[in-house]
Design a protein around this nucleic acid. Structure first.
Lengths: 149, 149
DNA sequence: ATCGTAAAGGTCAGAAAAAGTCAAAGATAC
DNA sequence: GTATCTTTGACTTTTTCTGACCTTTACGAT
């Protein structure tokens, strides 16, 4: 088993103990596993991505941290399907449609849907280059579903 | 938790007790937290800026003081003010702070704030080129606020 | 009134403490 | 063999903390 998987399983264990929310320091963790700090970033992006049902927040500077939270199982079941279905790009029309569907199926209240639609609207993303726009829209959409629903 | 956050939360508590207006002495506070006085200025400018909804006044010389007051305005005025104040770029830290402050002042419910924070998070915008990121964040933020009004 | 001094608070730049990025080198799997 | 996944480290950015030096104000002494 490589370092990445050891670190990942350590974090998984800690998450269990800590009831789903864990705050740690990148350099500590790196030291514990005897690897460079940037390895931790790799673990985060490959093992604790939103697609896998985790929220990762961090802060730099003195007293900085990395916080990992697991989304609730119930919610996970509810939303993972949608999040996975979205994939890596999402056009505006589909975004509206998905939001509307989530409202229809009771998974989203209509206010949230409205804001989600606003956040991923053409107007909000007008400055993003057209080539990237759908990708960014997908990221925002997924991030909001994970966090805010 | 670093000194800055301890001082900030001490002030927040005192503000609550004191009904929104608080007068204190820089050197006292510094002594209480065992730090240099200029640390207090740092706390003021990073945690109690007007952007975050506070007014800080002060006076030098004998009997000098620092007065911190929390501003209260009605929801729509506040939202519009914020929308206008945001300008064309917004970094992630400020976005979070503004959202939190809008919650504190009752202009946003915490669900909306979470959504807003998620939609404008670093992770949601990671694919946007760094040069554009703060601009796009500002656009999304304003767009969502407009629909939240 | 004026001046001097002590008692505040303000500024700014640099050091220190984190975390992030990215590309290249090394492994592994097929 | 080659494509994908890991590992590493040099460099960057953000945030906090500190101290040396500056400005403003109050209060007495003259």
């Amino acid at each position: 088993m490589g370092i990445t998987d050891m670190i990942a399983s350590f974090i998984l264990d800690s998450l269990d103990e800590a009831d789903g929310v864990l705050e740690l320091q990148r350099s500590d963790l790196a030291q514990r596993f005897n690897c460079v700090p940037s390895q931790i970033n790799y673990v985060m992006s490959t093992r604790f991505s939103p697609e896998r049902g985790y929220i990762v927040e961090s802060r730099r500077g003195g007293g900085g941290y990395i916080r990992i939270s697991r989304v609730q199982v119930d919610r996970e079941t509810l939303l993972m399907h949608v999040i996975n279905a979205i994939g890596s790009a999402l056009d505006e029309t589909s975004a509206r449609a998905i939001a509307q569907n989530l409202v229809n199926s009771g998974a989203l209240d209509s206010n949230t849907a409205r804001l989600l639609t606003a956040a991923t609207s053409h107007r909000a993303l007008i400055k993003v280059s057209p080539a990237l726009r759908d990708t960014v829209r997908a990221d925002i959409f997924k991030q909001v579903l994970l966090y805010a629903v």
